[in-house]
């Protein structure tokens, strides 16, 4: 890996009781996709939620350690400012239910600053294009967002995140609520997006990690067990635990 866009250093987090993740050190390069895999409850979602300071919004949540974005600790910055630079896509599609398709994509632009109409129109168009949704919705941009199918809603959420013009895109099991065809579309999309963004994707689907990610990190019981190029993790894992997981012996 030649450069670092984002890095977690000594990152631990909890929900008040025992630790959910412990002492994670992990780096993410620019213009690449990193997959985080591991069995349920291994802390992968908690970890990714620490990367845009969403974890601390949970009751009794605690975070220690540092997360650097372009060399600066995001825990020493304003969380809303951090989240504008680091977009997030959630497990279940969560478009703003009371808004139209267009307004969903334009949300970040409208709430977080001033943009002219033309500018907004242009960014909404580009974001929907980038999320591979434009062709499907161009004739009913002003219909309610919930009129879309689940897969379309998830791509709408990706478009909404992209419209905020982030540098990093966090995806927390973005396909777990989707059917296979929608999953394939979102995976294609991730493949394209990683040319422009730093993509960090949590998945419990190992094939998915193998298909989209340049690097893969394996988490187990709140610890980072191994991180390497995706090919290495799946073909020549160094750790016994990793090997057991990727070969399907547990998890």
């Amino acid at each position: 890996m030649d450069a670092t866009k984002m890095a977690a250093v000594g990152l631990s987090a909890s929900y008040g009781r025992g630790p959910a993740i412990t002492d994670i050190n992990l780096e993410f390069g620019p213009n690449s996709a990193t997959a985080i895999i591991g069995p349920s409850g291994c802390g992968k979602s908690t970890f990714i939620r620490c990367l845009n300071r969403m974890h601390e919004t949970a009751p009794r949540a605690t975070v220690t350690g540092k997360v650097f974005l372009d060399g600066e600790d995001i825990y020493e910055q304003d969380p809303t400012a951090v989240r504008r630079r680091i977009g997030m896509v959630f497990q279940r599609p969560n478009p703003f239910a009371t808004m139209t398709i267009f307004d969903n994509v334009a949300a970040a632009l409208r709430f977080n600053g001033r943009h002219s109409r033309e500018e907004t129109d242009k960014i909404v168009y580009e974001s929907l294009q980038a999320a591979a949704l434009w062709e499907e919705v161009k004739d009913h941009l002003f219909a309610g967002a919930t009129s879309l199918s689940g897969g379309q809603q998830q791509r709408l959420c990706i478009a909404r995140a992209l419209a905020a013009q982030p540098e990093v895109l966090l995806m927390d099991e973005p396909c777990s609520a989707l059917d296979p065809i929608s999953t394939a579309k979102v995976e294609d999309l991730i493949f394209t997006l990683k040319r422009t963004y730093t993509v960090i994707i949590v998945t419990h689907n190992m094939q998915q990690a193998a298909r989209v990610a340049d690097r893969t990190a394996f988490f187990y019981l709140g610890k980072l067990i191994e991180v390497n190029d995706t090919k290495e993790i799946f073909e020549r894992p160094k750790e016994k635990l990793t090997e057991g997981y990727v070969s399907g012996r547990f998890g």
Binding site: T80, F90, F96, F111, A164
Partner: peptide, 22 residues
């Protein structure tokens, strides 16, 4: 649903704007 609040928060929308308008 909390997912609506999370969606707004993750976009870096301030709490009071998200509350009032979403």
């Amino acid at each position: 649903p909390n997912s609506q609040r999370e969606a707004a928060e993750a976009l870096g929308i301030t709490k009071w704007k998200a509350t009032l308008r979403i």
